[in-house]
Simulated scan of single mutants.
Amino acid sequence: MGAERLQKLLSQAGIASRRASEELIIQGRVTVDGKVATLGDKADPKAQIVAVDGERIKVNTDLVYLAFNKPVGVVTTADDPQGRPTVMDFMPPKPRVYPVGRLDMDTSGLLLLTNDGEFANRITHPRYHVEKTYMCQIRGPVPKPAIRDLLAGVELDDGLATAVKAQVRIADQTRSLVEIVINEGRNRQVRRMMAAVNLPLEALVRTKIGPVHLGNMGQGKTRLLNSQELGALYAQVGMGAA
């Protein structure tokens, strides 16, 4: 890859944004092969040791981290024997990326994809408690006890499931929107939780994973995670500093 400016390398490693990386360099906290770096310096991470506060950073520009707005009807697999559209149909052929966790076919919204296996494993591992936020469209009004039950925990066939947060965002007599946050990733968990409290779910959208927001990204569209998002996720799963 050759030499790159240190601000870019720190950003690619998920250490900090480029602007924040400049501050790290100005503060004398960045070294290249043991020598304190100055603003404007370049380095080749494959040939030189770049460190922040004495800890070597890992930079691999071959790694890709994507956010994708999955439409309803698309399955979260690399290949589907039934011939249904998969998330891979929306991805460029190279580099090859894979979904981080799953969204069921009937759920739309935010999905992460990457070719960084360790990152994917940690994001989906329950020990790191990465929060996922969903917007649930419910038919009719939402009784207050249903929200209390979601927060207290509902019994599913694979154990107790508890919402980190749950609140009604919009409500009328015909339709309501409930926002729910969970930090697990069990199969169809939100759908089963809604069924457990007798809320008739009409549509389900995942709007957020950790610090990454779906925002106004169109369905079927993909974007790269920015350095702030990646740095925050790395920090949360113990792979680097934010």
Rank of each mutant, 00 (worst) to 15 (best):
A78D: 14
K42M: 14
G40K: 10
V50P: 01
R188W: 11
L112I: 01
L225D: 02
M135G: 09
Y234H: 12
G240L: 04
L24M: 03
L112E: 07
G231A: 15
M135Y: 13
D106I: 07
G2P: 00
P143W: 01
N60C: 11
D149S: 15
V30A: 01
E55Q: 15
K144G: 01
G215Q: 12
T107D: 06
D89M: 13
N115G: 10
D53Y: 07
R148P: 04
A242H: 10
K165C: 04
M88A: 09
K165A: 13
V30W: 08
D79Q: 14
R18T: 08
L230T: 06
F90R: 04
A47W: 05
L103R: 05
Q48N: 08
V164Q: 05
D106G: 07
H125V: 06
L156M: 06
H125Q: 09
A3F: 01
K165V: 02
E179Y: 04
G240M: 10
I26V: 14
V154H: 00
I147W: 11
L201A: 05
L151K: 13
V36K: 14
H125W: 01
S227H: 14
A16G: 07
H125K: 03
P95M: 11
I26D: 09
V237P: 00
D80C: 03
K42T: 14
D79I: 10
L112A: 06
R139D: 13
K70V: 06
E202A: 13
L6I: 12
V74E: 04
I182V: 15
T86I: 06
V237G: 03
V72E: 11
N183E: 15
L10N: 03
P200E: 06
L204G: 04
T133R: 14
I209A: 05
